[in-house]
Amino acid sequence: MSDFDPKIIAFCCQYCAYNAADTAGSMRLQYSPDVEIVLIPCSGRFDVILALKAFESGADGVYVAGCLEGGCHFLDGNIRAKKRVAYLQKELKAIGLEPERLAMVNVSASQGPQFAQNVDDFTAVVKGLGPSPFKKKLAA
């Protein structure tokens, strides 16, 4: 495992992923401490600009965690989020960033272990990719 501690931002839906994080906590599950969770009212609130601002602010990876497909509290917020993530992945690829640094995952409120696993899996992917190239210091 590399020494690099990535900075990861997770936009979590309040109806599922955010509660799944609570569940994981109640279950005393260990997961990577490199993730900072941002509460959003629905994964459908996720907008590409949120991820871009996160990358601009030094995030090495960003993911959106929404309800299981078919289980969105607002019917299709997670499907919309999935499309936005796919759109931004293309844009990031176009400017030379690994699209794997941005991801969409689905988890229900009761899936604490799944949430912890998602965090660890995504952290491993980002660690494998190394620090974000956006962090390069400006040329003198």
């Binding site: 871009l52 844009e91 030379g96 962090k135 390069k136 400006l138 040329a139």
Partner: peptide, 12 residues
């Protein structure tokens, strides 16, 4: 944001 990120990546 995309243009700024791209410049950041290239060190420009």
């Amino acid at each position: 944001a995309l243009l700024r990120l791209d410049a950041q990546k290239e060190g420009i």
